[in-house]
Simulated scan of single mutants.
Amino acid sequence: MSQAARPLTNAGAPAARPAVETLTSYSAPLEGRRELLRLDFNENTIGPSPLVANALRRFSSEEIAVYPEYDGLREAVVRNLTETGCRAGLQADQVEVFNGVDAAIHAVFQAYGDGGDVLLTTSPTFGYYSPCARMQGMEIEAVPYEGEAFAFPLAAVQAALTRRPPRLLLICNPNNPTGTRLEPETILALAASAPQTLVVVDELYEAFTGDSVLPTADFAATPNLLVLRSLAKTAGLAGLRIGFAIGHADVVDRVSRVTGPYDVNSVAVAAAFAALADQSYVDAYVAEVKRAREWTLVALQEADVRHHCDGGNYLLIWPKQPVQHVEAELRAAGILVRSMAGKALIDGCYRVSIGTTTQMQRFMQAFLPLER
């Protein structure tokens, strides 16, 4: 149907593509969160490195007035990845920078997803994958996690790859929100078994578990593998939106083709350089989150609270009272958590991001009285 012949919406405006007309936009309740203890969106809870703050203070008027420049940023990402365990030999043309990993995910679907193609993923998982697939008119096969431990449904995923090879296989590792972890060797084997499928591994929370494929991935041997990383969860740049895609140069090139020329702004670029130069800050924050995670798990076990925690900087809690009531009471106490109401397999619980030990002690002091 030509654009002129498209039907009108109820308001009289031209209708969008059919895939968009049936789409519900992905949105998150982000307003009114400042000055509260943010345990709802898995962000860094203490802020970025002092080097980042210094870089932003030095940001000049001229830098604001000109278009962003990216010279050296991909090389800085490569250096950082190599220093933190990535397989040697990664080149700058195997990395692309995006306005957050959300933009990278969107670009992957624009570059590789088409009407009638299949997205294979798991359920429940990060909520933005499905809208991106639907934007492209793709079919979605979401395989549920297994049992009370939310084990990765490996046999079912292998069967789906054999039965009808999908265009995309998207694995969040560790998975948000279940924390399910998958060994890097298993992911590489899945990619090797399905050479016509682009296997995208969302590693936003990898730093808290150490399950990355990058130390062993050979993109020349497995060119259908793409890894997503971010500076939001560990380095504290969620508000500036910096994400990366790492893979075979040809795949990275195709994904880059569907992005705008200046999608990543100059302030974010300056912050990214500074954050990448202070890996010791990130390491210290991650170590503190791990300590806080262990403290919280002990406290929940001693209080006999039903919970689930595997990987990532978050856990799931099933409260005795309705989730909406607990969420409201915690917000009144200045603490934000995220309800999982309506999500497959985990309806009736809420997700709690893990901050510092002091922050988690504050959370437990507010939460435990609600269990009595």
Rank of each mutant, 00 (worst) to 15 (best):
A13V: 01
R79Y: 10
E31A: 07
E43K: 10
A111R: 01
A287M: 06
Y26E: 10
Y112A: 09
E206F: 08
P319M: 04
K320F: 03
P215F: 02
P369H: 08
S256A: 15
Q196N: 11
Y314C: 07
Q94W: 06
M340P: 07
A271E: 02
H308T: 06
E203T: 02
V97F: 02
C86E: 05
R163T: 15
R58D: 15
V298N: 07
V352D: 08
A332S: 15
V52T: 08
R257T: 14
S230F: 03
V352G: 03
T178S: 14
C349L: 11
V77Q: 00
G47Q: 09
I46C: 09
Q91G: 11
L37G: 06
Q110C: 10
A103Y: 13
L188P: 02
L368D: 05
G32S: 05
S130N: 03
Y285M: 04
R79C: 13
T24A: 09
L30F: 09
A11P: 02
T22V: 14
T125D: 05
Q110R: 15
A344N: 14
G116E: 04
A107K: 12
A156Q: 14
G243F: 01
A142M: 13
E43F: 13
E183S: 12
A341L: 11
A217N: 00
Q279N: 07
K343C: 11
M138T: 00
D347F: 12
D93T: 01
A221N: 13
D263P: 12
Y350P: 06
R372P: 04
P322G: 05
T178D: 11
P18G: 04
V78Q: 14
L154N: 03
T216H: 13
